[in-house]
Amino acid sequence: MPALSVVDLTLSFGGLNALGEVNLEVPDRSLFAVIGPNGAGKTSFFNCVTGYYRPTRGSVRLDGREISGLPVDEVARLGVRRTFQNVRVFPKLSALENVLAGAHLRTSANLATSVLGTPRARRHERELAAEAQRWLEYVGLAGKARVLAGDLPYGMRKRLEVARALIAKPSVLLLDEPAAGVSSVERDELADVVGKTWREGVTVVMIEHDVELVMRLASTVAVLDHGRLLAVGAPETVRNDPRVIEAYLGRRRSQGPWSQA
């Protein structure tokens, strides 16, 4: 059974179709890349999957269970985590607290134990903090635990977001342009983190503009253009698909409207 299956997914804003009848299956434990020009509907697709948008039509299934229309926190509860294109860490919390906030669903503390701080609750907190520290190390932020997230440089904030998502032990991880706007060194570090995570058995869906990175990492690539699914398949096949080349580079002049003029 695919980890995510999307059937006939349509999202309209007024007359504009951000997504039009998209059909996709993200295989379990795959590293799935979604590419496409700006405004192709990639982030809209993520927002439909994670519950931020309610699709106009169509269904989104997670392990066979319908999740479209569920509130954001319910989708999270079912094991879907995401990062955001415009990095959204909690700026006035330390890096460690950011990661701990991501573990919200993994802690059992109720109101009473939160207020009273029972020995058991404290031990649990300590264990969790130690684990959060390990996740910071995992993304290469070992020494930054106490730094306020807002004070971290851009590339580190992106990695912090990944750690915050990973501590929840998601079954599906959605990464929205993890390598955008970071240096080539940081991009390689991010690629390592993504690859490691995928090998641990997490299904990773990644929106990415960096074609070289996509070709290197992804097992399957889907191409969106103007809200429609243009092509899906192995990276090499997709790269040579004439429709994809057209979407990115345009038509040959002789075939374009100019030739008719």
Partner: peptide, 9 residues
Amino acid sequence: DTAQAMGIK
């Protein structure tokens, strides 16, 4: 919005 994505009601 991000808090909600952590599963916080």
